[in-house]
Amino acid sequence: MSKTTIETIKIIDIPKIEDTRGNLSVIEKNTIPFKIKRVYYLYDVPSTAYRGGHAHKEQLELLVALSGSFEVKLSDGVKQISIMLNKPNKGLLIPTGIWRELENFSSGSVCLVLSSDVFDKNDYIYDFKEFMRFKSLK
């Protein structure tokens, strides 16, 4: 049974160094609460499409809107929230056992995902009914 709830989701401040030549943000080992084992990014997502539609049993993820914006809909099986990501110095930390869907991508948006583990298809829950069973919230 997964005890994570909507309240365990956090927005992480990514350090920003401001300069007249442009800003720089840095993600280091102390910025996020897990060791990064996989990095990927979503781009060229049509504004009418959505990504995600799953939860993880063990993996943690940090989502960052490097460019543009997109909406992240989250559910713990009881409560739902929606968070708009649109700043490259803010990251959305999603713990295990949280359902996520990404939609409403703006033109040119890029979503960076930092993961606590390598890809493992057995860690994914793609069916919401199975997710509810995993959460033991029938």
Rank of each mutant, 00 (worst) to 15 (best):
L74R: 05
Y43R: 09
V45H: 15
I32Q: 12
G77I: 12
S47F: 09
I81F: 05
T96Q: 04
L60V: 06
L92F: 07
G77K: 07
I83V: 15
F70P: 00
E28L: 10
Q59E: 00
R21A: 11
R38P: 02
S82T: 09
S109G: 05
D76K: 07
K87D: 03
N30K: 13
C111D: 02
M84K: 15
F34M: 11
T48Y: 06
G68D: 13
D76G: 01
T96W: 03
F70K: 11
V39Y: 00
N86V: 03
T96G: 01
Q80F: 00
P95D: 01
G91W: 01
L63F: 09
K57V: 03
L85G: 10
G53C: 12
Q59V: 01
S69Y: 12
I83P: 06
N89G: 02
G22W: 10
F105I: 14
K87R: 12
A55K: 11
I32Y: 06
G108R: 15
F105E: 08
G68C: 06
S25V: 13
I98C: 06
S107W: 04
R38E: 07
N23W: 15
L63Y: 05
E71M: 12
Q80R: 09
N89A: 08
K73C: 08
V113E: 02
M84G: 07
D44E: 10
E61G: 08
Y43E: 12
V110I: 15
E101M: 14
V45W: 09
A49N: 07
K73G: 06
G97M: 06
N89D: 15
D44G: 02
N104R: 15
S82G: 05
L60K: 00
E61I: 03
L74Q: 04
A55G: 10
L102F: 11
V64Y: 01
C111Q: 07
L42E: 03
F105G: 09
G52K: 10
E101W: 12
V45M: 11
L63E: 10
C111V: 15
K73S: 10
S69I: 02
S25Q: 14
E28S: 05
L62N: 08
I36Y: 02
E71I: 10
S69P: 00
L24D: 14
K29D: 13
I94W: 01
M84F: 08
F70S: 02
N89K: 00
L66H: 11
V64K: 08
I32R: 02
